[in-house]
């Protein structure tokens, strides 16, 4: 068991290293180096930089050294929490990202929980009552849900919320908490604002998840252990919930890790529409502005979070799946 966990941990560290290389490459992508961009920016605002000053900056950032030395220096700085300056905002990258990273995680987890909360029961129902009228209805709604873009849904809900209930649905905070420091009041404010965007984001994955759960469960329902459970006199709903549903849920544990980047990239447009303070829109904007330290940092942080998520899924899978536990002994 310990070797298994160590193995996974080693793999996770390697992956993080690979992600750091990718982030570094992203930072290096625009033509010229950081100082060139800096000079151009300053020139645009009217002030010129003297050549000596530029050279000093280059040495300070190690830009005169081979690329792998630069990478190493960058990595060392990142390890101490110095992610560099955001070109566009003129502030440290971490300050620009601020709470956005945590809010992204919170809203993604909320969206995932809502997705599961809606999709799994419907998937179970659709499989158990295959070809029943509700099964067809759910299938139809599911496909419509797949076809309608989420941002459109977000716009429609905002429109009706405003029109009918005079609700202003955008954002995650009320105006008075927008810039306030964290407090219980702010957390409560967030809790109140969370459900709607979570539901809208959740609907993206829901239809697909219903199909997966339905298919998984249909597969399991045909298996002999279900008949065996029936043959010992177990009531039908207990047969289904204890055995095939348990087996059909198992694969979901392994997807937890991948859900975060999926939700983040899938949510950029919705986040823009609903003006959610998540990293998605920030990433988009930094890429457009070629604000490379910001973009690279966001990619790095999301990547690391995904690796951590995957590691957690591995642990969960190990915890819930006896076959994996057994495989680790022998």
């Amino acid at each position: 068991m310990v070797t298994y966990i160590l193995q996974r941990l080693g793999l996770a560290l390697l992956t993080i290293l690979a992600i750091s290389v990718v982030s570094f490459v992203i930072i290096q992508l625009p033509p010229g180096d950081f100082v060139d961009t800096y000079i151009t920016n300053l020139a645009a605002s009217g002030s010129a930089v003297r050549a000596e000053e530029a050279a000093a900056l280059r040495i300070q950032y190690g830009l005169d050294q081979p690329i792998w030395v630069q990478y190493w220096k960058w990595l060392s700085r990142v390890a101490t929490g110095d992610f560099g300056m955001s070109m566009e905002w003129g502030r440290p990258v971490l300050e620009v990202i601020g709470d956005r990273l945590w809010l992204t995680i919170v809203i993604s987890i909320a969206a995932i929980l809502v997705t599961w909360g809606i999709a799994l029961p419907i998937g179970i129902y659709s499989a158990v009552r295959q070809y029943s009228i509700p099964d067809y209805v759910f299938t139809l709604i599911g496909f419509v849900g797949l076809a309608v873009p989420n941002f459109l849904l977000a716009l429609i809900i905002m429109y009706f919320g405003f029109k009918l209930f005079d609700l202003n649905i955008g954002g995650l905070f009320s105006a008075e908490y927008q810039l306030a420091p964290w407090s219980w009041g702010k957390i409560w404010d967030l809790t109140k604002h969370l459900p709607l965007p979570a539901v809208i984001l959740a609907l993206a994955g829901t239809a697909q998840l219903i199909r997966i759960m339905r298919a998984n469960l249909l597969d399991e329902l045909r298996r002999p252990y279900v008949t065996t459970a029936r043959a010992r006199g177990l009531p039908e709903w207990r047969v289904i919930m204890k055995y095939p549903v348990r087996a059909a849920l198992n694969p979901f544990a392994s997807t937890i890790g991948y859900l975060l980047p999926f939700v983040v990239s899938g949510s950029i447009v919705v986040s823009l529409v609903l003006s959610l303070p998540t990293v998605g829109p920030l990433l988009l904007r930094s890429l457009i502005a070629q604000d490379m330290f910001l973009a690279g940092t966001i990619v790095l942080l999301l990547g690391v979070l995904t690796v951590i998520g995957t590691f957690i899924s591995d642990l969960i899978l190990m915890w819930i799946d006896p076959r994996i536990r057994a495989g680790m002994h022998g």
Partner: peptide, 29 residues
């Protein structure tokens, strides 16, 4: 689906299946 039928299953009539591997749940001891 009646309670009487469930009472008979296992209670009066035990059933041994052909496939001992797939007839047991691998998620439960």
């Amino acid at each position: 689906k009646s309670a009487e039928m469930r009472d008979i299953r296992g209670g009066e009539i035990g059933y041994v299946f052909q496939e001992p591997m797939s007839s047991l749940s691998s998620f439960h001891t």
